[in-house]
Design a protein around this nucleic acid. Structure first.
Length: 328
DNA sequence: CGATCAGCCCGCCATT
DNA sequence: GAAATGGCGGGCTGAT
């Protein structure tokens, strides 16, 4: 398993600057936290048009793709054009070499144009889903997914889902602790699972209800280790159980119980990575009734046991300390 | 692994 | 009348 050090972002003509910014923020913002480097590339080096009208100077052509561990195909303002023969070949070579390729929004069209997605599942912005399926009938388009992880090929939904996609990749390759730190810097939610609906109604500007719910979520997170019941949460939000569930779903896209489970697993993962505590200890500190239930749920999410996860995580990413220099 | 039981959650509907 | 609420019943999921 590679640790994805060299990240190369391909910027098409008319690149969406938000995506460019997100990629930079996630992979380049805090070099002291990780050992990844980000290189920008494009078809021919020079000024590249952006959706803002202001061009961006990209110094590299397609050559960096040949040494990329992770390739990000950035979206253009509309559905990306099919890749040029040179780009197509470079992406296919990267894939054959074992590189991971991620694309979201309009960028998925470029990736699909390489033929690599043939017969696989992918997602894109919901407005493009029909067009993508039409242009590439051999593709299983999942417009409801926030991102779809096919291992070496990962696709994401609309513009802001780029953050979800990138953070997912960081989490997958470098662990939840780093992903969470980066998310905290960006002030975005650390983890939204891929099968969550795209069109989640975000908790709109703080009206009374939004506050009550947000407050309850924060409170719940602070009390994760306790045996929280839905009735307790509802009581904290001063709502009936039924109304609470309804509000919760429109605001977050999941049910309270599912959300709690996610929070608990996220924290358990982080503790596995950053502490020497036993699985039993962690289970209790994260609100799982027993180590057995933690193992069960952990297996469903990650496909391995907590112990194995910790061991393989240690193997590829030697312990990071927040204070000391990295041994590299 | 399968049984059992508590608690979740969702459709339905009367009420506000 | 439209929209939100909350109680109820039961199918279902998850914990033990």
């Amino acid at each position: 398993v590679s640790s994805l050090r060299h990240v190369v972002a391909y910027a098409p003509a008319g690149v969406v600057t938000l995506a460019l910014g997100l990629a930079t923020a996630v992979f380049r913002a805090r070099p002291e936290l990780h050992d990844m480097d980000l290189t920008l590339c494009t078809d021919t080096p020079g000024p590249v048009a952006t959706d803002l009208g202001v061009p961006v100077l990209v110094r590299a052509g397609l050559r960096p793709l040949s040494r990329a561990d992770l390739v990000l195909v950035l979206p253009a303002g509309g559905p990306n054009a099919d890749p040029s023969p040179a780009l197509r070949a470079a992406l296919r070579r990267a894939h054959a070499r074992g590189a991971v390729i991620g694309a979201h929004c309009a960028g998925v069209f470029t990736l699909a144009g390489t033929g690599l997605l043939e017969g696989r599942s992918a997602t894109t912005h919901w407005q493009y889903a029909a067009a993508l399926a039409r242009r590439h009938p051999a593709l299983d388009v999942r417009p409801e997914a926030l991102y779809v992880d096919e291992g070496a090929l990962v696709t994401g939904a609309g513009a802001a889902a780029g953050a979800d996609l990138y953070l997912h990749l960081v989490r997958r390759e470098h662990g939840a602790a780093l992903a969470n730190s980066l998310a905290r810097l960006l002030v975005v939610p650390p983890h939204r699972s891929g099968d969550q609906q795209q069109y989640v109604e975000l908790p709109v500007a703080a009206d009374a209800d939004g506050d009550r719910l947000a407050g309850t979520l924060a409170w719940a997170r602070a009390h994760l280790p306790e045996n929280l019941t839905i009735d307790e949460l509802a009581a904290h939000a001063v709502m009936s159980r039924r109304s609470f569930i309804r509000h919760f779903q429109t605001a977050t896209g999941t049910t309270p119980h599912q959300w709690l489970l996610h929070q608990r697993l996220d924290r358990a993962e982080q503790l596995l990575e950053t502490t020497p505590w036993t699985v039993d200890e962690i289970a209790h500190r994260t609100g799982f009734g027993s180590a057995a239930t933690l193992r069960e749920r952990f297996g469903q999410r990650r496909g391995t046991s907590p112990g194995e996860y910790r061991r393989s995580f240690r193997r590829e990413a030697p312990p990071r300390t927040d204070t000391g220099p990295t041994p590299d």
